[in-house]
Nucleic acid binder design. Structure first.
Lengths: 240, 240
DNA sequence: CGAAACGTTGAGCTAGTTCAATCCTGGTGG
DNA sequence: CCACCAGGATTGAACTAGCTCAACGTTTCG
């Protein structure tokens, strides 16, 4: 039992993790703390000397605009490191916030750098994880752009469900956690709060998917997938 | 004189490149070819065994939607490697196209892997370049989302100008290449062709910036920057 | 119970879309 | 050199998706 187990599991899910690399990971120093829902973790402009590991819970990243608007750019599940990129990019161009009560761990850059120096295969795996992040950004760009609000919403729901599934976070009645409020959902899709609400309502009424009490339940996966034009290739879960 | 010189220059512009690493780069095998404007280079679904280096010219990446719509997700200048990520992510989730007549080189993954194994500092620099790519994606997401069409367009123009400047591609009257047609610009911003046209017109009439004959000329940088809410931090040109 | 945060709904309005015509430019063949 | 053509740029006009504003309902939790 280590705080780092979720990281090991996450990396194993996107590629093959050797025993040596696993041990390197488990030897990383880590300091954990609790973060309450809606509390900031790292701020736009910061130059952190550690990277955050989500031990449990869910975080999101967002950019703050000059006019006060917000753009969510990603969400992150247990085992992920939302600001791994600060290893090679000093200053944060966005902020990190907890979507629900979470336990996070801080891992010093120095230690990660040492691990990376020690193992080429571990480097490859961590690099790969940042590349998958980028692939997700591209899809979100399309969610905000050409895909349009309805398909974009459906696409986001597909992604949440699939990523939760591979993280083993889907319960028996096919629901997974989704602690976004509708404002945050709107900020992730670049639409208004009211429109987000109406889009969700439409999906519910068509018997496709519902969000209730912070959980997403997909009632008709094929319909949701079709509405989204969802192709899971971009999550690159298989092709390591 | 090597086909790889632009790559050396590009990497030197985002971090410090040791003599050893430079020599590793210059020793990479590369096969070049000409690509005419609007010709495809790599296709969504491909599993390339090489990565593309832009020796000269300009390329763009885009996703094709089921309804025929397109989303541009990035553009790339001389010296960049638009599909470096295929090193660790097998299948392309988007396509690569030439925006103008270009010379590209194919560099085998094997050779890059070997170079990466040989030098930790080179690994860091290449990794960093993909992380900067991701930072740009985040901004484009915002361009397509919360920033809105006007500010989004201005932001894109700022980025093009600044990236061209650091690549040394700005001529004396302050103009740089921008071989997008208006449809492509619209596809990059998730707006209609007509609206893209009108937004450009407005920027021109306000004396901010013009695009003429495939070149972008910024007449009032401060005004453009203000309209965009542009903060160049995300390009991470200084903080290596 | 009461307060606060979040979700839902209606109504009017506007930014941005679609459709369709026209103009401009560079390139080609005669 | 000029007529012609194709791709791109520009414009107008009608339409509508999505926004804003504002009210009201619901859940959660101290």
């Amino acid at each position: 039992m280590s705080l780092l187990d979720p990281l090991v599991a996450k990396l194993a899910s996107i590629g093959s993790l050797s025993a040596t690399d696993r041990d390197l990971l488990l030897a990383l120093p880590i300091v954990s703390r609790l973060v309450a829902a809606n509390q900031p973790v790292v701020h736009q402009g910061d130059k952190p000397k550690t990277s955050v590991l989500i031990v449990s819970g869910m975080l999101a990243r967002y950019q703050e605009l000059t006019d006060g608007g917000r753009q969510l750019v990603s969400f992150h599940l247990t085992g992920e490191m939302p600001d791994l990129h600060t290893l090679y990019i000093r200053t944060m161009d966005h902020s990190l916030v907890a979507l629900k009560d979470s336990v996070i761990g801080h891992v010093p850059h120095d230690a990660i750098h040492a691990a990376v120096r020690a193992s080429g295969s571990l480097t490859a795996l961590l690099w790969r994880s940042t590349l998958i992040d980028a692939a997700i950004f591209r899809q979100w760009m399309t969610n905000n752009g050409r895909r349009g609000p309805v398909a974009g919403t459906a696409h986001l729901l597909c992604e949440i469900m699939l990523r939760s599934r591979t993280a083993g976070n889907v319960d028996k009645d096919g629901a997974c956690e989704m602690p976004f409020n509708q404002q945050q959902l709107a900020d992730a899709l670049g639409i208004s709060l009211v429109h987000a609400n109406r889009t969700l309502k439409a999906l519910k009424e068509r018997g496709t998917a519902v969000i209730e009490r912070g959980r997403l339940r997909v009632m008709d996966w094929d319909a949701l997938r079709a509405a989204a034009g969802f192709d899971p290739t971009y999550l690159h879960l298989q092709d390591a």
